[in-house]
């Protein structure tokens, strides 16, 4: 199976390629006050307003760093952006190389994880395979849905989720 591999705070993570829409250059996101805490803001991707989740914040890392990419993924029937430090590439990882995760690994909660991939046995370098569906809890998913509907409600009334592109 193929994975999109990226880095957050020095750690290597992978998400299944079938859930990925595209990789975007990092841009400033719009911070909107009424959104729940786990959503950092929204961004406009070719006319679609999508919520953006900062994986550093999500993993509880407060230290600031140079974030360079946004991966947009399919989430709850819509699209959401994940802010990451860097996209390493697309990699084929056979299923037999993926082992089930311990309960806590390197301060990351195991409920985000689908498995661990040891690149070379005996080394510390490990790619954590993330489960996109589990990045948000059920309540959070509902909050996300309602927030986005609220945000794009006006746009929907005018016809779908498309809104006018801002110049520039």
């Amino acid at each position: 199976m193929k994975y999109t591999v990226f880095k957050v705070a020095g750690g290597s993570f992978g998400i299944g390629i079938e859930g990925v829409v595209e990789i975007l250059k990092y841009r400033e996101i719009e911070r909107i006050p009424q959104l729940p805490d786990f959503i950092s803001g929204v961004m406009n991707v070719r006319g679609d307003v999508i919520p953006v989740i900062d994986l550093r914040e999500r993993f509880g890392i407060t230290e600031e760093a140079d974030r360079r990419r946004i991966i947009t993924v399919r989430l709850e029937g819509g699209t959401a952006g994940l802010i990451v430090d860097e996209v390493t590439g697309i990699r084929e990882i056979p299923d037999e190389k993926i082992s089930s995760p311990p309960r806590v690994f390197n301060e990351f909660r195991s409920d985000f994880m689908k498995g661990l991939c040891h690149e070379q046995p005996g080394r510390d370098r490990v790619t954590i395979i993330l489960d996109i569906e589990r990045i948000l809890s059920r309540d959070e998913k509902i909050m996300l849905k309602t927030s986005m509907e609220k945000l794009t409600g006006e746009g929907r009334k005018r016809g779908g989720r498309r809104i006018e592109k801002r110049p520039g």
């Binding site: 990925v20 990789i23 990419r69």
Partner: peptide, 13 residues
């Protein structure tokens, strides 16, 4: 680079 990554994703999908 980013374009190629996206193209790879599209190709796999």
């Amino acid at each position: 680079g980013m374009l190629s990554l996206n193209a790879q994703i599209l190709a796999v999908q």
